[in-house]
């Protein structure tokens, strides 16, 4: 591939937003305000969303934000783990690692929930394998074949071990 380029200065808009004053300072363009300069730094929106679902709150803030998302409130075992995580600050592994664990537990709960509703999740479709099949067939088939080979191989090894164990039985 060749990098033959047009003269950038002839591109539409070259340099129109150039700003010699934008030497790295913070924040950009708007006047910087520290908390003590702000006459109203604790200002909150007039209305607060009623808290009618369980919202887990970071201990690094004093209150529930004026609006919040109400999707998927904590439930079940994953919910218990999430509640535990929120005892720790965002600065602590005690917060993030349990949350990752809860996410994985939640996946299993999701499958149980599906089955409970008489729905067997179509994992092949959910993983979008149709796209792989359509656009990346060779690599996809190779990958699946490898997974299959490894699985069959493991089963064979495990069963052979079992036979060995039986050999020494009286």
């Amino acid at each position: 591939m060749e990098n033959t380029l047009r003269d950038p200065q002839k591109l539409p808009g070259w340099g129109i937003d150039a700003n010699p004053d934008n030497d790295p300072t913070y924040p950009m363009r708007e006047p910087r305000l520290n908390v003590s300069q702000d006459p109203d730094s604790k200002h909150r929106p007039a209305s607060l969303q009623p808290v009618d679902v369980e919202v887990l709150k970071s201990i690094e803030r004093p209150n529930v934000s004026a609006v919040f998302g109400e999707s998927s409130p904590p439930v079940g075992l994953s919910g218990m783990i999430r509640r535990f995580a929120f005892k720790y600050s965002e600065s602590h592994y005690g917060h993030w690692l349990p949350l990752l664990l809860a996410d994985r537990v939640n996946v299993v709960e999701g499958i149980i929930e599906d089955l409970g509703q008489g729905k067997v999740p179509n994992i092949f479709a959910e993983k979008g394998y149709a796209a792989e099949w359509k656009h990346n067939r060779t690599a996809f088939v190779a990958k699946m074949a490898t997974i299959a080979a490894v699985t069959i191989g493991s089963i064979l090894i495990l069963t052979r071990d079992n036979e060995k164990k039986h050999k020494y039985r009286y």
């Binding site: 924040p27 950009m28 363009r29 708007e30 006047p31 910087r32 305000l33 908390v35 702000d38 730094s41 604790k42 200002h43 909150r44 929106p45 919202v55 887990l56 709150k57 970071s58 690094e60 803030r61 529930v64 934000s65 004026a66 609006v67 919040f68 998302g69 929120f86 965002e90």
Partner: peptide
């Protein structure tokens, strides 16, 4: 209208995320 939005930091609003203080909603 919060301290951060007032400064044009709309990506860092203080009244849109309860679960984490480092990131806005």
């Amino acid at each position: 209208e919060c301290h951060f939005c007032k400064q044009g930091m709309f990506g860092n609003c203080h009244e849109s995320n309860t679960q984490a203080s480092a990131v806005g909603g």
